[in-house]
Design a protein around this nucleic acid. Structure first.
Length: 415
RNA sequence: GUGGGCGUAGCUCAAAUGGUUAGAGUGCCGGGUUGUGGCCCCGGAGGUCGAGGGUUCAAGUCCCUUCGCUCACCCCA
């Protein structure tokens, strides 16, 4: 087998799976509509600069996971590793902030990260991305989380674990950052090599380490909530009050940090057990300085991304099959075949799902095919039936059969 | 980037210590049976045993190399 295969980590979504995706998308879009979100399509290719500025140039994503190349010797371009940067770029580029004070957007599409593929992790994967731009109020945070949980409920998932935290603003985070460095300095040598490196570049991410010995050290580390400024503390408390108002359970996880540098204040994550370290189905948070950093006005924002493949893997048990055809036409002989071909397509134009076999095989073979397709009815056409302008219509459920006129077939079919 | 597992038919897998023309189930194609289909029966097509090299009279099996897949670490959604 020396055939050309798909690129490593890039997956084909086969028809049955695509159908399941579509079902979930429909539900998701319905929820977004209820909450006043509008869809935006942005390109999958952007100037590299957008991501180094947005995500942060010391993050793993930017450092070693992006698909970056030169466009025929011109600009450095990158296949987007996440959607927020692109959406904000579009928001700024089209001055969408001047249309209304608050803009609610969603987008669904592929992202690209060159990591080693694994269960629940692909190099091309899909995200459902949601952004609220222009709302600083804690209500916006709570509302977004409410919608998220509602969304999961609507697709049939409940009792998932919601973690929330606040990362503070750049000012108070700087103070906390130093506290962490001070705290870990003494135990520096006991940290794993990765964390030793992180301590210099991005000390908060040491909290994310799965290494047991690092975790033990971190247990006694200071909590960020003890160091955030009055404004951030107040904001976060209001978010929590709102969540309580909705009766929404959550874990306060002061060790949760995010892998993208742009996050500020409220962050949240939905995880599911038994998914190893690929357990984050949703990640999100506030990014109040990002629009400004990308060259736009100083407008606050908050959003989240759902890992589509991970979401779908949780739904595996309750997937419906694509709808079967309503009618299968089995034709015998070339004359009947020709008539069936015409009839088949005429009915399709009238909005009925019809299938037939063009190969002109034996009746048995065609009946087998009809049965396999799961069609509700089968119409049997022979030369004799064509002459008479009628056909044998069989109800596949009851096995009852009757002769029906071809020009009025539709009225005999109960869809 | 690091580590483990696995590559035999479209799919799921067999083939004891190396030993004749590499098998089964399922799916596909055809035929028989049947109340024109489901169940059952018969037949057919489909494999360079991932690739390359080595050991041997003899390699799917042993050794080396390589490629691919997969799982975990890492990271993230």
């Amino acid at each position: 087998m020396n055939n050309i295969t798909a690129v490593k980590g890039f997956k084909d979504i086969l028809p049955e799976e695509a159908h399941h995706w579509h079902q979930v998308e429909r539900i998701v879009r319905g929820v977004f509509a209820d909450f006043g979100f509008q869809e935006i399509h942005v390109p999958i290719l952007e100037k590299t600069e957008l991501f180094t500025k947005g995500i942060g140039d010391t993050t793993d994503i930017v450092e070693k996971e992006m698909y970056t190349f030169r466009d025929r010797g011109e600009d450095s371009l990158t296949l987007r590793p996440e959607a927020t940067s692109s959406i904000l770029r579009a928001y700024i580029e089209h001055s969408m902030f001047s249309r209304s004070s608050v803009t609610k957007l969603f987008s669904i599409g592929p992202m690209f990260r060159r990591e080693r593929p694994q269960k629940g992790r692909y190099r091309q994967f899909h995200q459902i991305d949601v952004e609220v731009l222009g709302a600083e109020e804690p209500q916006a945070d709570a509302e977004l989380i409410l919608m998220l949980v509602h969304l999961f409920k609507m697709v049939g998932l409940e009792n998932l674990s919601l973690d929330i935290n606040s990362l503070g603003c750049p000012e108070c985070r700087l103070i906390f950052r130093q506290k962490v460095i001070d705290f870990l300095q003494d135990t520096h040598d006991s940290l794993c090599p990765d964390c030793q490196r992180l301590l210099v570049n991005n000390p908060l991410r040491v909290f994310d380490c799965k290494n047991d010995s690092c975790r033990r050290l971190i247990q006694d580390a200071p909590s960020i909530l003890d160091f955030i400024c009055e404004g951030c503390r107040c904001h976060f408390n209001q978010v929590r009050t709102c969540l309580d108002m909705f009766g929404m359970p959550y874990n306060l996880n002061t060790r949760m940090v995010r892998g993208l540098d742009y996050y500020t204040r409220t962050t949240f994550e939905i995880t599911v057990p038994h998914m190893g370290s690929q357990n984050a189905v949703v990640g999100g948070g506030r990014y109040d300085g990002l629009i400004r950093d990308l060259g736009g006005p100083d407008i606050p924002g908050i959003g989240f991304a759902i890992g589509f493949e991970r979401l779908m893997s949780l739904l595996q048990d309750r997937q419906e099959s694509p709808p079967p055809p309503v009618l299968f036409i089995a034709a015998l002989g070339s004359e009947a075949q020709a008539a069936a071909f015409k009839l088949c397509n005429r009915l399709r134009l009238e909005g009925i799902r019809v299938e037939m076999d063009y190969a002109g095989k034996s009746l048995k073979s065609q009946m087998k095919k009809a049965d396999k397709s799961g069609s509700l009815y089968t119409l049997i056409l022979g030369e004799r039936e064509i002459q008479a302008g009628e056909g044998e219509l069989r109800d596949m459920g009851s096995s009852k059969q009757r002769t029906v006129p071809l020009d009025n077939l539709k009225s005999h079919i109960v869809q």
